[in-house]
């Protein structure tokens, strides 16, 4: 009785282990062990900000690419990339850290509502229907597709302005909000020294008068900033100014001349109201050092 049980169980065990061994040999998939090592280092957010399907895909790309120049994990940033480079023995490019900026400042006061939207609260749906509740058909709709797309909780709709705000500490510049915004309002810009940056917070391409009528904070394409800029960082196309983050030296002169306050500067020391002429110069000096 006992013997039969032992033989049966033992037999089943031996046969199964044999089958398992054969199966594992037959269906074995070789994976470069480096991929797993790289994946260990990556943040495992699987945000897709690098352009690859998740961290595993990015790790695979890192291992197989000849150099790491075009590869950046926006979440981990330079620190993570240098560790990846260390494992793989490859060079890493010193990519500038980036951050999302919202290029619309048409808050509720600046942009009076002319229509009332009553559909599903979703920017993609609203934008396929019409230009927006205000006269400006370029600006933010405020239904928060960007906030919904952000997996880090780094972008939220401010209920008083109706516009999205980026929380700098949380933003990993993964670009999910940029893809989510149907109006292409959000841009990934160079984070800048001490997180200081200057950008045109408007994407309205209407003629000046039309733009101004629909929003008092709109860029009207008046060219004042372009003339003021000594570094040729500002270009105007279709009645809209754009500041190149590569060329901008953060001198803050354009901000001062903008008649509609469409140019925004972030994280600068407050300007001295009395000596408008002097302050940009001093700023320029300090910023030169920073760069």
């Amino acid at each position: 009785m006992i013997l039969i049980a032992i033989i049966t169980l033992g037999g089943i065990g031996i046969i199964s282990s044999g089958l398992l061994y054969l199966a594992s040999r037959k269906f074995e998939v070789y994976e470069n062990p480096l991929i797993a090592q790289v994946q260990e280092i990556l943040p495992a957010a699987n945000c897709g900000g690098c352009g690859y399907p998740g961290c595993a895909g990015f790790a695979d790309a890192c291992v197989n690419a000849p150099s790491l120049e075009d590869l950046l994990c926006p979440v981990g940033g330079a620190a993570v990339m240098s560790r990846v480079a260390g494992i793989l023995g490859k060079d890493t490019a010193g990519a500038d850290p980036k951050i999302a900026v919202v290029r619309c400042n048409g808050n509720c006061e600046a942009r009076p509502h002319v229509n009332q939207y009553d559909g599903a609260g979703n920017c993609a749906i609203a934008s396929s229907l019409y230009g927006g509740e205000t006269g400006c058909s370029y600006g933010c709709l405020g239904y928060g597709d960007c906030a919904a797309a952000c997996t880090f909780g780094a972008i939220i709709i401010n209920s008083s302005t109706g516009l999205p705000e980026v929380i700098e500490d949380k933003c990993t510049s993964c670009g999910a909000c940029v893809k989510a915004c149907p109006k292409n309002i959000i841009e990934l810009r160079k984070k800048g020294p001490k997180s200081r940056r200057i950008f045109v917070s408007c994407v309205n391409r209407d003629k000046g008068g039309v733009a101004r009528k629909s929003c008092s904070n709109a860029c009207i394409g008046c060219n004042k900033c372009e003339k003021e800029c000594k570094f040729e960082a500002i270009t105007i196309t279709d009645n809209l100014a754009y500041i190149s983050s590569q060329k901008c030296r953060l001198c803050r002169k354009c901000t001062a001349v903008c008649p509609t306050n469409a140019i925004h500067e972030l994280n600068f020391a407050p300007r001295k109201e009395t000596s408008l002429e002097d302050s940009p110069k001093t700023d320029e000096k300090t910023n030169q050092k920073n760069i």
């Binding site: 002319v114 229509n115 559909g119 599903a120």
Partner: peptide, 10 residues
């Protein structure tokens, strides 16, 4: 503008 027209998808 007389009053705000309501906009919604069909």
């Amino acid at each position: 503008m007389e009053n705000k027209l309501i906009i919604s998808p069909s």
